[in-house]
């Protein structure tokens, strides 16, 4: 039993040298996976061409597992800093319920299995982008950007923008203008979404010594940047319609949703609250940003189905 270094506490208080399956499940960041599965499915549905329902299911499963593997790499790399933040201190690694080498092995196996299975089920383009996405999140974002630059969320946003592109490529075997614009939408959405959150949990990031924008450049600059990216998001989100790649349903929806997003961002830009409890505008924008992305992609799918009917 010497190789089992960490003991864990059961609810009954008994120390046990074996992790539960729930701890491995938690490594996958299941809540993040929801958005990944949804945007990947949207990319897959709006792509021209057909993929059998079973292979579509396999493709989305692989994208979800690949995203989960990225989350496992992330938690393996950030176990120490996660332990310093209230939001993440109870994750399996900082809480001592799981050994680090088990988490790493789990992440490697899932990465390899998801990429190779996606290749077998669909094509090498989709599998290659999935591999790139995992590498980008684990290495470029977690190791390089996140601990070193307040632009971490901006460039790192690309990691979360891959799923609709992979979904599209799984069907077509290539990447054209529309999937690139879907990538750009998530890329532009990520900074205002994350910075709104980072503003009201900035003390957690300060404890973990993460150079988030509200800490390095202050609240006023963060509010200004949120507004700038919200304008960019509005422009990028209507671009698919402006370029004739989608129908009127999507175009109108993108304009309305983007305008609401922008109004909320203006409220954030005008706000002056410094205490997290008083940051109502920031909390409102954060909550709406999640709804925004779900609605925008759902309406993109609805638009594609209407055009095909």
């Amino acid at each position: 039993m010497g190789h089992i270094a960490q003991l864990e506490e059961t609810p009954a208080g008994i120390a046990l040298p074996v992790a539960e399956w729930r701890d491995f499940w938690a490594l996958l960041k299941p809540r993040v996976m929801t958005l990944v599965v949804f945007t990947a499915a949207c990319g897959l549905i709006v792509a021209p061409g057909t993929l059998s329902p079973f292979l579509s299911f396999v493709a989305i499963l692989c994208i979800a597992v690949g995203a989960g593997a990225s989350g496992a790499f992330n938690q393996w790399l950030e176990a120490d800093t996660d332990g310093l933040m209230k939001r993440t201190a109870n994750r399996p690694l900082p809480a001592g319920r799981l050994r680090r080498e088990d988490a790493l092995g789990f992440a490697i196996i899932l990465s390899a299995a998801s990429v190779m299975t996606l290749w077998l089920a669909t094509n090498w383009v989709a599998a290659g982008i999935l591999a790139l996405g995992i590498f980008f999140y684990a290495v470029i974002y977690t190791i390089w950007l996140k601990p070193n630059t307040p632009q971490n969320i901006v460039i790192g946003g690309a990691a979360g923008a891959f799923p609709p592109v992979i979904g599209w490529a799984a069907v077509t075997g290539d990447v054209t203008a529309l999937p690139l614009l879907l990538f750009a939408i998530i890329f532009a959405w990520t900074p205002p979404h994350f910075w709104a959150l980072a503003m009201f949990i900035r003390r957690d990031y300060a404890n973990a010594q993460m150079p988030m924008l509200p800490l390095t450049h202050g609240l006023a600059e963060t509010r200004k940047q949120i507004l700038i990216y919200s304008v960019v998001l509005l422009a990028v989100s209507v671009a698919p319609f402006a370029l004739g790649l989608t129908g009127m349903l999507y175009g109108m929806s993108a304009a309305i949703l983007g305008s609401i997003f922008l109004v909320l961002a203006i409220q954030v830009a005008r706000a002056t609250a410094e205490e997290p409890a008083e940051m109502l505008a920031e909390k409102r924008l954060f909550k709406f940003s999640i709804l925004y992305l779900f609605l925008l992609f759902a309406l993109l799918v609805a638009d594609a189905l209407v055009l095909r009917a």
């Binding site: 059998s52 079973f54 292979l55 396999v58 499963l61 299975t117 077998l120 089920a121």
Partner: peptide, 13 residues
């Protein structure tokens, strides 16, 4: 089951 299904789907496709 997954790999069996993939194989059958690819052959059928």
């Amino acid at each position: 089951v997954l790999f069996y299904g993939i194989t059958i789907s690819r052959i059928a496709g």
